[in-house]
Simulated assay, not measured.
Amino acid sequence: PFDPATRPLTPHEARVLATLMEKARTVPDSYPMSLNGLLTGCNQKTSREPVMALSDAEAQEALDSLKRLTLAFETSGNRTTRWEHNFQRGVGVPDQSAVLLGLLMLRGPQTAGELRINAERWHRFADISSVEAFLDELQERSTEKGGPLVVLLPRAPGAREPRWAHLLCGPVDASTIAPATGGGGGSGSGSSALQARVDALEAQVAALQATVQRLCAELGIADEMSPPGQA
């Protein structure tokens, strides 16, 4: 299986891989993904930490590297190359662990509670303790299997709970990680609900874009919804 201790992912590779993982679960109609759709997902302004602005070339370079690592592969679509991830098999983890790692790659360090809320559209965990059980398993992963894939960070000043970070891009320096935002009482739950609505709307837009692209490809006409230079 993939061993981040030997060959860690770059931030671009992690973003591309995690975006494929996310869209496979949240907008299955537009999966496998075209480079256009993938780029839009990678550069989203919400549900991403940090926000990135990958170019076509950078996304393609990351896909080519992931293919060599057997973490992604291409499938031919209607005149368009489409991409799928191979995370669970490539890394050797169960679905639930893959969900948590994907979320950590997309959104940065999170508490077990935040991971459970953010995972709603990927997989429904019964409770926080089930999330913690999979995180513990990932942290205690044996050397034979490639070693730990997550680490529990020291609790930040003023924070109620410690956050978890992934190790797919190599060791984590806790001092360089931005402090958690929000998190208070009522405001935290309100912002989570708002975020969930924004995510749902983004998923609907992505699905509509994929449908339009597919129809345009079948009809042989230009896709007016594609961003300039990405048609």
Rank of each mutant, 00 (worst) to 15 (best):
residue 43 N to H: 02
residue 4 P to W: 06
residue 103 L to Q: 10
residue 181 T to H: 09
residue 108 G to W: 12
residue 123 H to A: 04
residue 156 A to M: 11
residue 122 W to K: 03
residue 39 L to S: 06
residue 64 D to P: 00
residue 187 S to G: 11
residue 79 R to W: 09
residue 225 M to R: 10
residue 218 E to T: 14
residue 201 L to K: 05
residue 93 V to Y: 07
residue 162 P to C: 05
residue 92 G to Y: 01
residue 133 A to V: 08
residue 228 P to C: 07
residue 129 S to V: 04
residue 226 S to P: 00
residue 112 A to C: 15
residue 38 L to R: 05
residue 14 A to H: 04
residue 40 T to K: 00
residue 124 R to I: 05
residue 117 I to H: 11
residue 205 V to K: 09
residue 118 N to W: 06
residue 55 S to M: 02
residue 44 Q to M: 08
residue 147 G to W: 10
residue 103 L to V: 11
residue 63 L to V: 01
residue 202 E to Q: 15
residue 92 G to N: 06
residue 173 D to F: 02
residue 168 L to V: 13
residue 181 T to A: 11
residue 187 S to F: 14
residue 13 E to D: 02
residue 6 T to L: 12
residue 187 S to W: 13
residue 199 D to K: 04
residue 211 T to G: 05
residue 163 R to C: 12
residue 36 N to K: 02
residue 141 R to P: 09
residue 13 E to R: 04
residue 135 L to K: 06
residue 138 L to W: 01
residue 84 E to R: 13
residue 210 A to D: 02
residue 2 F to R: 08
residue 68 R to K: 15
residue 199 D to H: 02
residue 123 H to R: 14
residue 80 T to I: 15
residue 71 L to H: 07
residue 189 S to T: 09
residue 175 S to E: 12
residue 126 A to Y: 05
residue 197 R to G: 11
residue 134 F to P: 00
residue 130 S to Q: 12
residue 110 Q to I: 04
residue 59 A to G: 07
residue 175 S to A: 13
residue 150 V to E: 08
residue 154 P to K: 05
residue 69 L to S: 10
residue 16 V to A: 00
residue 17 L to H: 04
residue 169 C to V: 06
residue 24 A to W: 01
residue 210 A to Y: 05
residue 65 S to H: 09
residue 202 E to S: 14
residue 18 A to M: 04
residue 51 V to G: 01
residue 26 T to E: 05
residue 29 D to V: 13
residue 39 L to R: 10
residue 209 Q to Y: 07
residue 217 A to P: 09
residue 159 A to D: 15
residue 88 Q to F: 03
residue 218 E to G: 08
residue 205 V to F: 10
residue 74 E to T: 11
residue 113 G to V: 09
residue 40 T to Y: 00
residue 75 T to N: 06
residue 177 I to H: 05
residue 123 H to M: 09
residue 173 D to N: 10
residue 172 V to M: 14
residue 62 A to S: 15
residue 120 E to H: 11
residue 57 A to W: 04
residue 205 V to R: 10
residue 214 R to G: 00
residue 168 L to S: 12
residue 9 L to E: 08
residue 165 A to N: 12
residue 184 G to E: 15
